[in-house]
């Protein structure tokens, strides 16, 4: 049996844990393209998901995953063609990804995981990313030498540059060169909290290119077109608060909430496992 491994890349508050919790609920209660294998019963260790499952059933969000957390849930899956897969779903504090950027290196454990992974899942919450498009004219004038006034953009990187540098770091330490287009690891970009962006006719890829054009260009020129896909993801379907008591979540169950927008755009699809199925289909 093939045991695909995925690497989940998402910063703090990008919605990793909520996606994991909702994904498990879907696999258990509303199987779609992927489901849990019935012969295995409930996965042996659900402690990584315990808090989020509890919180969502109560109609509120789970707390922040502690920075030092690094756990894994084993999901015994079966696809539509009855092929069995064992998926190791990692969960960790999003600050660890920021530390990779700050320290310009990864720990051995991370490196091993990156090297072995068949697919990378990149979670980006577009609404929370900081870019500096408005400063453009001012920056050009200032660089021209006429005026050397202080600009508001003194610290911090543009989110475009941050994500490109982070991907470059991860590709380098995992031994992936970028001169030839990459076919492996396949890359799924999940634009999390997609409901925050409001309705639009544009595909998720177009929305990524609008908000983070440099990152979109980088992904487009480094990965082979067939090895990358961009999805919209709203794991909860709406904004919940830490103290809210959403009745739909309590009464209908969290597994009835949340959706993804496929790469080609269109209507929301309730099957949250689709992006993973896309990553796994050729493995």
């Amino acid at each position: 049996m093939h045991k695909p491994e995925l690497v989940l890349l998402g910063g703090p508050n990008s919605g990793k844990t909520h996606y994991a919790g909702q994904l498990y609920g879907r696999l258990q209660n509303r199987p779609g393209v992927l489901g849990l294998r019935s012969d295995q019963g409930t996965p042996p260790d659900l402690s990584a998901l315990a808090e989020v499952l509890h919180a969502l059933n109560e109609g509120h969000t789970a707390g922040h995953t502690p920075t030092g957390t690094s756990t894994e849930v084993l999901l015994p899956l079966v696809d539509e063609r009855n092929r069995a897969l064992d998926l190791h779903w990692p969960d960790y504090g999003g600050e660890q990804l920021r530390a990779v950027f700050d320290e310009r290196g990864v720990k051995e454990e991370w490196r091993q995981r990156l090297v072995k992974a068949d697919g990378w899942v990149l979670l980006i919450r577009l609404q929370a990313e900081t870019t500096f498009p408005d400063a453009l004219e001012g920056l050009l004038k200032s660089a021209d030498g006429d005026s050397r006034r202080e600009l508001p953009r003194k610290s911090g990187w543009d989110a475009n540059a941050y994500w490109v540098e982070l991907l470059q770091l991860l590709l380098h330490v995992s031994g992936n060169g970028t001169v030839q287009r990459l076919h492996r690891p396949r890359l799924t970009v999940l634009l999390s909290c997609y409901d925050e962006l409001g309705p639009s006719e544009a595909t998720p890829k177009q929305r990524l290119a609008k908000k983070l054009p440099l990152l979109a260009a980088f992904i487009g020129s480094v990965w082979a077109p067939k090895a990358v896909s961009v999805w919209g993801l709203s794991a909860l379907g709406r904004a919940l608060e830490e103290k809210s008591q959403d009745e739909a979540f309590i009464d209908e169950g969290p597994e009835q909430q949340g959706w993804v927008i496929p790469p080609s755009g269109g209507d929301p699809d309730a099957d949250l496992a689709r992006p993973l199925a896309w990553l796994l289909e050729v493995l």
Partner: peptide, 15 residues
């Protein structure tokens, strides 16, 4: 398709 001097580019952007 990438850059090994993004920090320098960002410095330039902040002039």
């Amino acid at each position: 398709a990438g850059s090994h001097s993004l920090s320098a580019w960002e410095s330039l952007a902040t002039s």
